[in-house]
Amino acid sequence: MNLTQHYDQLYKTSSEIISTGKYSIDSELKNESDSRFGITLLIRPNDEIKANIHSFLNELRKAEPEQYFYPDSDIHITVMSIISCSSDFTLNQISAKEYIEVICRSLVDVEKIQIHFKGITASPSALMIQGFPSDETLNNLRNRLRENFKNSGLQQSIDSRYSISTAHSTVMRFQEKLHDPKKLIEIAEKFRDYDFGEFEVKNLELVYNDWYQRKSTTRVLGDFGLR
């Protein structure tokens, strides 16, 4: 997949939807009884990247203070959704140790992963930072995870919603009606090609998480350092 083309098309389609007021509001964000949980392998950007993201979020907050903004603790890139969030899943259904073993096997000989956060894109209900891996290492790891979990016999739902191939990070979701959709897109345009920085991934986390990766409900099951 050409990530630049993918992000560009997503932005073009979604910015038009938002500008014309046809965007989607995520009604589950304020649902305190939301019981959708799953298992995710993820990457967290470093503090320098998060600080750069703040400048974008601060401008968005001034224009749309009632929307949902990801705190530093929750910003992430999904490497693989191993068990998709569902109200039918609870942690006691699995042995975390077995999942950790499959991930450890998949990480053997993985070279360093470098990700460049540059520019922003959108969906009809959210704004995201565009992530660009420097090479095929992340995709190769994902393919190895797919193969190893498929052969493991463990409960998993990899690629059941869609086959993950991007490295974006969602930072804002719409939880209320927008005050000024066109103003929001003006701010987005300003950061469309903004360089948020590049970082080397030092570790991956396996987490039990809710739909929005909120720290308050997330449980870290494993931490995997990279060479």
Rank of each mutant, 00 (worst) to 15 (best):
F117G: 11
D223M: 05
L154T: 11
R161L: 15
T13R: 15
I43F: 06
E48R: 09
T217C: 10
D26Y: 07
N2D: 08
L29E: 04
N31P: 05
S84K: 11
M1I: 14
A188N: 10
S27P: 11
D74A: 01
S160K: 14
I39Y: 03
E147T: 12
K202D: 02
I43W: 09
L3M: 04
Y99W: 09
E101P: 02
T4F: 07
I185C: 01
T166F: 11
R36E: 00
Q130K: 09
E186K: 15
P133A: 10
D180E: 14
T90L: 10
N58K: 08
S81Q: 14
D26L: 14
S24P: 00
Q114G: 06
L206S: 00
Y11K: 10
N2Q: 14
K50P: 01
N92Y: 04
R214W: 00
K50F: 01
L107M: 09
S14H: 08
D159P: 12
I77R: 06
Q5D: 08
R144H: 07
S19V: 01
L204W: 08
E101K: 14
S216N: 05
F69T: 06
L42T: 02
N143M: 04
S165Y: 03
L107G: 02
Y70T: 12
N203G: 02
D26C: 15
K97M: 12
E136M: 13
I77T: 04
K118A: 07
S33A: 11
K183F: 04
